[in-house]
Amino acid sequence: MTEIEAVLHSYQNRDREYLLPILQDIQRIKGFITTEVVVAVAAHLKIPTSKVYAVASFYDQFRFVPFAKYQIKVCNGTGCHIEGSNALFEELKKQLEPKNGNQFKSDLFSLEQVQCLGACGNAPVMKINEIFYTSVTPEMAAGLLSSIKAQEEIQ
């Protein structure tokens, strides 16, 4: 039995209300939602594929592309916005831009601005994977990135 089948198997009750929990469980395992997942879930719950996709694409949580190794999330909640999260984001973007023809493998870093991470007292906040960094200045962020890059042996 594949991982997806195992998840579906654990939902013997096929009511529509289990659509979101099923998708969440699958994403937790696979990291993202594929076409096959949408088709399999639709068949399991006996609803049209289009409806499953409509629901999955409505919510921010579901992704349709795989995660990068280092997911950088810069909080853009109100507190962080005031304390300069935009400058932080721009700096990170600049750091991750291809330089002298050397491009990062796209599966290494992903950078996004996200909604409030709920740690507004120590704004601006960013997360690399599950680790929080608080009161981050653009310089600090650049330092963090270069240590990761050194680790990955990328110039």
């Binding site: 991470l117 709920g118 740690a119 007292g121 120590n122 929080f132 608080t134």
Partner: peptide, 8 residues
Amino acid sequence: GTCGIAAG
């Protein structure tokens, strides 16, 4: 709490 963990 999440805020505490965020601060270390």
